[in-house]
């Protein structure tokens, strides 16, 4: 496995709402635009279902960056976006307590035809991860090197 680390790329998890980010990602696909392959997109109804520990657990499992693409003010769910924003905020605090760089977690409102914002989010997360490195190193070493 050591040899593999040289080609290892950071893993980005995208949590995307069916009414927003997930449809937006499909739209990007329909336009045949390109983005990095290290992204895996999981559809959700509304990310308000995830509590803080879901994100912390994901980092601990080895996910290097998470983009939560919610529907913002376009959400079909009353109170969902507000609650999501609150949970993400709380998660930032927990990440700081554990020495995790909070830039690993992003919340972005992505609509069904938001192709540019979608691509921008993926690109910026990759740039961030290039800069701050793998989550495992952060969890294990904390500032080694």
């Amino acid at each position: 496995m050591e040899a593999a680390t040289s080609t290892k790329v950071p893993k980005i998890l995208v949590i995307a709402t069916l009414s927003g980010g997930y449809a937006g990602a499909d739209y990007v696909g329909q336009q045949h635009l390109h983005y990095a392959t290290n992204t895996s997109i999981l559809p959700v109804r509304c990310p308000s279902m995830f509590s803080e520990d879901f994100y912390i657990n994901a980092f601990e499992k080895g996910i290097d960056g998470i983009i939560v693409m919610y529907s913002g003010t376009d959400s079909p769910y009353k109170g969902g976006p507000e609650r999501t924003a609150q949970i993400i905020d709380n998660t930032y605090k927990q990440m700081q307590e554990r020495g995790l760089n909070t830039r690993r977690l992003r919340l972005a409102a992505i609509c069904t035809v938001c192709k540019k914002p979608f691509l921008k989010q993926v690109k910026e997360m990759n740039e961030t991860l290039d800069e701050i490195g793998f989550v495992q190193d952060e969890l294990a070493g904390k500032g080694d090197g």
């Binding site: 959700v44 109804r45 509304c46 308000s48 279902m49 995830f50 509590s51 079909p76 769910y77 009353k78 109170g79 969902g80 609650r83 949970i87």
Partner: peptide, 10 residues
């Protein structure tokens, strides 16, 4: 129920 899941995380 809308199935949003607010209650799940709460």
């Amino acid at each position: 129920c809308s199935g949003c899941g607010n209650c799940v995380s709460a």
